[in-house]
């Protein structure tokens, strides 16, 4: 995988981001449905606040205190880079207890619990990846998921990278479970992605004008 370069996209396109999120929404809901099918308490997933991560924002994410957990998948095809779901460790622990029905405890996550989290993260990330492919008309595939534990700084790509992130709030048993889905693209992919985003925005604009 190519290492993304600092701030690869010329400028954030907030309107495009909002538009992308709007278009992604039904597809992400489908991913949520996949999650709900699992034989445990239903998880409602809500992606929101899609935003371009400048260096400062990414740095804020990195500097979050405490142990974190990330499920990561590499991207192949039209876009290369990586996508990951970042959760604070206590939140991940809470989720897994609900998933597997085990009582709350302070012990490290077990192998089965880590696998369960991996699958949930996999479904959630695939929802985004497939949504992006469809909305932007690109072919993007995600490789096998991997779970990692560590500080946010260790789990997120190196300082200086830019990326796309959305806060992702999953709800389990009525309680919110805050987290972030972060998309970090390689330099070339970022330019390509930005171009598609602008095309999307133009197309939407044209459609709106046509409607008038």
């Amino acid at each position: 995988m190519q290492r993304p370069s600092p701030n690869p996209v010329p400028s954030p396109v907030p309107d495009s981001c909002a538009l992308l999120l709007k278009q992604l929404d039904p597809r992400l809901l489908a991913a949520g449905n996949d999650l709900s099918e699992l034989s445990f308490s239903p998880i409602e997933v809500c992606f929101r606040g899609l935003e371009w991560l400048d260096e400062g924002t990414l740095q804020d994410l990195r500097e979050q205190d405490g142990q974190h957990l990330a499920i990561r998948q590499a991207l192949e095809g039209s876009l290369t880079g990586e996508v990951l779901w970042l959760l604070k460790e206590p939140d991940a622990r809470r989720l897994v207890r609900i998933l597997t029905g085990t009582p709350p405890g302070r012990e490290p996550l077990s192998y089965s619990e880590r696998e369960a989290l991996t699958e949930v993260g996999n479904l959630l990330l695939l929802g985004l990846v497939e949504g992006l492919s469809d909305v932007l008309g690109m072919t993007v595939a995600a490789t096998a998921p991997a779970l990692r534990l560590g500080s946010a700084a260790r789990l997120l790509p190196d300082e200086g990278s830019g990326g796309l992130a959305m806060s992702c709030e999953a709800k389990t048993g009525g309680k919110p479970l805050p987290g972030h889905v972060v998309l970090i693209l390689s330099s070339l992919s970022s330019v390509y992605f930005d171009r598609h985003l602008r095309i999307l925005a133009d197309r939407e604009g044209a459609n709106a004008r046509g409607a008038h």
Partner: peptide, 28 residues
């Protein structure tokens, strides 16, 4: 059928990898 089959279809149609954990699919 179910999640496993959707994962197979994803791989075949979209080239995506998936992961199924027995912890989340007891009996399935």
């Amino acid at each position: 059928s179910g999640a496993a089959h959707r994962a197979v279809r994803r791989a075949l149609e979209r080239g995506n990898s998936s992961f199924l954990s027995s912890a989340l699919h007891p009996g399935q």
